[in-house]
């Protein structure tokens, strides 16, 4: 009888430690959707470039501007979907969407991401775009690894996979596009599905 109380104590301690330090209402479904957006965006960009007069991408054409626009759209759609579905999930769990744990998660995620994004823009401004896909994968991967301490620990492995894909893309820039599709499209769908079945269906 005594030991039952102690067991309850231990599980309560674990529960509070998790609840107070990690934000666990992230929606897996939003990961799947982000992956789908990325693939649709990449496919659109691919056909735009292939059907253009040149058949490849240059920095100062209007096709390049269109591609940047598609990229921005994919990012915005993914973020908005993520916020909506995560808010919904948090409500269902009776958790707060904007508390200490989610603030910490967002700031730790954004620091590497904004650093990387700014660095890529600086490079593009200087006319160097060969490493863009690689740098996006690497910095996104680092952001995930950094954020994983404040949410589901599993996110770390997605981050590591993206970092590796990014380093491969840096070595073989010719495959950058396809590695980007794997990292941002396919991996998001696989990971989102795994997270969905593991955590969403409670």
């Amino acid at each position: 009888m005594e030991s039952k109380n102690y067991l309850k104590d231990i599980s309560e301690i674990k529960n509070l430690m998790n609840k107070s330090s990690r934000f666990i209402s992230l929606s897996g479904l939003s990961g799947i959707l982000a992956g789908i957006y990325a693939i649709i965006g990449a496919a659109t960009a691919y056909f735009l470039v292939k059907n253009s007069d040149r058949g490849y991408l240059i920095l100062d054409g209007y096709i390049f501007k269109l591609c940047m626009l598609i990229l921005a759209l994919v990012a915005i759609l993914s973020i908005v979907t993520g916020i909506i579905l995560t808010t919904k999930k948090a409500k269902k769990q009776g958790a707060k969407i904007w508390d200490t744990s989610s603030k910490r998660l967002v700031s730790n995620f954004l620091i590497p991401l904004i650093t990387g994004g700014t660095y890529i823009l600086i490079l593009l401004y200087q006319g160097k775009y060969g490493q863009t896909a690689a740098l996006m994968l690497i910095f996104y991967g680092l952001a995930l690894v950094n954020a994983s301490k404040y949410s589901f620990g599993d996110i770390k492995y997605l981050g590591i996979i993206d970092i590796i894909l990014g380093l491969v893309a840096a070595t073989f820039p010719g495959y950058g596009f396809w590695l980007w599709v794997i990292g941002f499209g396919i991996m998001h769908i696989i990971y989102g599905a795994l997270m969905h079945f593991k955590y969403d269906r409670v």
Binding site: D9, E12, L16, M17, S20, T100
Partner: peptide
């Protein structure tokens, strides 16, 4: 239970304010 709870939260966080403890 509550004292144990306060310690559990503070063990994994650099600090916590009154409101955060109260809500958790």
């Amino acid at each position: 239970r509550i004292r144990l709870g306060i310690m559990s939260i503070l063990m994994v966080n650099e600090y916590a304010d009154f409101k955060m403890l109260k809500e958790l």
